[in-house]
Amino acid sequence: MPASNDAVRELIYRSCRCLDLQDFDGYIALCAPAFRYRITLYSPELRKEMIWLNHDRDGLTALLAMVPRHLVRLGTLQRNATVYTIDRNEADSRADVMSAFSVFNIDNEGRPSVFAVGHYHDTVDLSDDQPFLLSRNARLASRDLGIGSHIPI
């Protein structure tokens, strides 16, 4: 039975929650074997598209596994997402899902600041009742990310 729209929404929200909690194994478990992750944006300075991160599932798994060895930004990142559209293609058992996201940094003193704003453009595998992420393009609208982050958005 193909995954429902409710299950698709839960997949998107769960992916955010896993990254918030730095539950990287949980995040990867939501991704299909052929998963592709990208962070992209348009540069009005260069008048070109840019790619700021590009990994397949194995590459992303390795990247996330190394995070604990790094000197990472203080505090936590918290993702707020809203699923805007789910365009189902039943013939291909896929859906194109577009969601808005805002990522806040909560520093060690509890002060919030906006880290990034953009949209997720996801492709979701619907072939089973449990949907999986086939691809995620985290499309940034904001471009100044301060010191940056070791953890994807």
Binding site: I51, L71, P152
Partner: peptide, 22 residues
Amino acid sequence: RIDHHNEYWGPFGRNVTEDAFA
């Protein structure tokens, strides 16, 4: 080249973020 750049550098690189942290 983009991938090699992003491994070290850029806002999600493994190096520059830490320099800014310092």
